[in-house]
Nucleic acid binder design. Structure first.
Lengths: 206, 206
DNA sequence: TCGCAAATGTGACTTTAGTCATATTATATT
DNA sequence: AATATAATATGACTAAAGTCACATTTGCGA
């Protein structure tokens, strides 16, 4: 967990840490990254690190969340709902077309460095990847979906919006976890994701 | 991930490792446990460890899975279905009664040491706990649920049993993750678990 | 503005994880 | 049985994580 001591830091210092961490996580696979190096680069003493964070995964989460936040903000700015992204559209348009659109958008929104960072997340140890993705889902994606559910006429009014938004935010995490364990090809993940999403919707649609 | 090299080891050696790890994880909170100590205790050289496992979380998973396996086997032996355990029954009988029954069963099946181990799992870093629980769910619990779904007349025949069994196996993991993040009291977890289970069932019941 | 307490900063130090070159043992091939 | 080849075992070594006692700064009531 990222401690409140970190949040209280000056923007300048927070950014110095983020940038140093980002560079490290972009250029190395997760297991090869070093807290020591990041701290030297950012000019932060070792002791301080453990006042701000629990461990390396927090630092990684910080970097990944920054990219997710960018993605979300862009979609919002363009008036595109978040729920429509990823899985659901993939199913609606078919895998090929949906994936093309998805890639196109990512290319618009994300830099090459962002892609490298995401790539490293995909190859990080299973528990780190799951942690980081669930983190982003719950902290960034779920709140947006919750709002979308509230203003969606086809959704029941008596449900716990936050909880179902959280469940929906896992639409990428859960199938990927399952698919990875079963060693399924990437393409199948999306259909699993759709099934998962479908099962949540079955409970909350009027 | 636990490598196949470990599986190939003699039962004697595997058990020596399991017992040494178990003792370490029972007597220390996760962060205070040491691979080095476990290996010294088990008489296994450092280099061998990394031929069998990726890291400490594998060793922890090994210990936790052994207890889950015991629980599952006991329920099977007594002819009690797995799906009825935990959340669902909690909802059917009400929290108080359901929890009493749950505790009673656990007390029958598990030793004090098993409890200590589980306790340490509950307080392990978030990503370790999630990893270990999802692991057990997917490797041990899901296969049993899959069989139960297949022989359940009220379940549709055209579904992907394994996948929905996997989703149902997460009925304890998902609500606990959400509840922990939101800092909800333990009791609420069970109602969230029921909602989660409900939403999956809505999709697979005839 | 002084003095005190709480919060934050600091880096030498200890312990732990993880690597790798080499040794040993098992398995297959003729 | 002799030889080649692959699989496993080993522990000294390197690099990393994590700790802690002490220093410095900040906030705040008198």
């Amino acid at each position: 967990m990222i401690h409140s001591t970190f949040e209280r830091l000056s923007e300048e210092k927070k950014d110095r840490i983020l940038q140093a961490a980002r560079a490290e996580f972009i250029h190395n696979p997760y297991e090869k990254t070093s807290i020591n190096r990041i701290l030297t680069e950012a000019g932060i003493p070792k002791g301080s690190f453990y006042q701000y964070f629990d461990d390396k995964s927090d630092l990684f989460s910080l970097c990944i969340n920054a990219v997710y936040r960018k993605l979300i903000d862009e979609r919002k700015k363009n008036g595109e709902p978040l729920l429509e992204s990823g899985m659901l559209r993939m199913k609606r348009l078919g895998f090929e077309k949906g994936y093309q659109l998805f890639s196109k958008e990512l290319n618009e929104y994300l830099s090459e460095e962002d892609f490298a960072l995401f790539e490293n997340m995909l190859h990080a140890p299973h528990h780190i990847r799951t942690f980081v993705q669930m983190n982003a889902a719950s902290a960034l994606i779920a709140p947006v979906i919750s709002e979308e559910l509230k203003s969606d006429k086809s959704v029941r009014k008596d449900i716990d919006y936050d909880y179902y938004a959280y469940l929906l935010s896992l639409t990428e995490v859960i199938p990927v976890d399952y698919g990875t364990r079963k060693e399924l090809p990437m393409e199948e993940f999306y259909f699993l994701g759709y099934k998962y999403m479908r099962s949540i919707y079955d409970s909350i649609l009027r």
